[in-house]
Design a protein around this nucleic acid. Structure first.
Length: 257
DNA sequence: ATGGCGCCACGATGGCGA
């Protein structure tokens, strides 16, 4: 069983790459971020033709998330229940026995800004809700673009990025609080190559110089953790001609005992 | 150097991302 997350930075632009990727990586479920599409423009037919069922939650211009799965997901939740939020950032569904939560965490722009305050509030609401979801669904995966680099080893230049957005102590504390719910960072369950990133700036030849951040994550619940057999960042799509600035992350789980 | 690139809504350039 495989789950994956990918910030596609416009599904309208990236749809051909998504279909190519799914053909090469027939994962059981995939969450997308930054679809940047209203629901009436979502390419549902093309994705269904590729063998996936899909649920989506979009808006004009910004944000937008989707949940693709081989088997139809049930109990779809859009955004964080109880949080008044104009921005389409969360979609969750139950795939088989697993609760799959896909999220596009706020960027936060800069510490001290209004957008940073929104990020903090959003993170508070997310944590409270995920705690409830974990109580309901022992088998749970939370994945997406967290816009948080959890540790200095997740940053190509931790000195330059110290205290900058994605690397502030406040954001990192929130990441740790998610782990405090019992979740595990699947990527760090394994020995990984140093300088492993999931995002590279479009500018400054950052990908060629491998200057990036690891900000896309897959967190697994205690019930799933013993089944995780691999977790990888797939850099290949970042080498495409018109790539997303993010790479997909894939987790592999053994079948249930 | 606060730029650089890419996407979107525009119908020129600005907001935003990270």
């Amino acid at each position: 069983m495989q789950f994956a997350t990918w910030n596609v930075n416009s599904l309208a632009v990236r749809l051909p790459q998504l279909l190519d990727w799914l053909a090469a990586h027939p994962v059981d479920a995939l969450v997308l971020q930054e679809t940047k599409l209203t629901d009436d423009k979502f390419p549902q037919a093309e994705i269904e033709a590729a063998g996936y069922r899909v649920a989506f939650h979009g808006q004009k211009t910004y944000n937008g998330v989707a949940l693709l799965s081989r088997e139809a997901a049930s109990d779809i939740t859009r955004n964080i229940p109880g949080l008044a939020d104009e921005q389409a950032r969360v979609i969750a569904g139950t795939v088989g026995d697993t609760r799959v939560i896909g999220a596009y965490f706020p960027n936060g722009q800069a510490p001290g800004s209004e957008k940073f305050a929104y990020k903090m509030q959003w993170l508070d609401a997310l944590r409270a809700w995920v705690r409830e979801e974990l109580a309901r669904h022992p088998q749970l995966v939370l994945m997406g673009d967290f816009n948080i680099a959890p540790e200095d080893r997740d940053v190509y230049d931790p000195v330059a990025w110290a205290g900058q957005i994605h690397c502030t102590p406040e954001e990192r504390a929130h990441f740790q609080q998610l782990l405090g719910l019992g979740l595990s960072d699947a990527f760090r369950l394994f020995e990984q190559p140093p300088k492993s990133w999931s995002w590279w700036d479009y500018r400054n030849l950052a990908f060629r110089k491998n200057q990036g951040l690891r900000i896309d994550h897959i967190l697994v619940s205690p019930a799933l953790k013993p089944r995780v057999s691999a977790c990888e960042i797939d850099k290949a799509p970042r080498k495409n001609e018109r790539p997303s600035d993010h790479a997909p992350v894939i987790v592999t789980l053994d079948a249930q005992p």
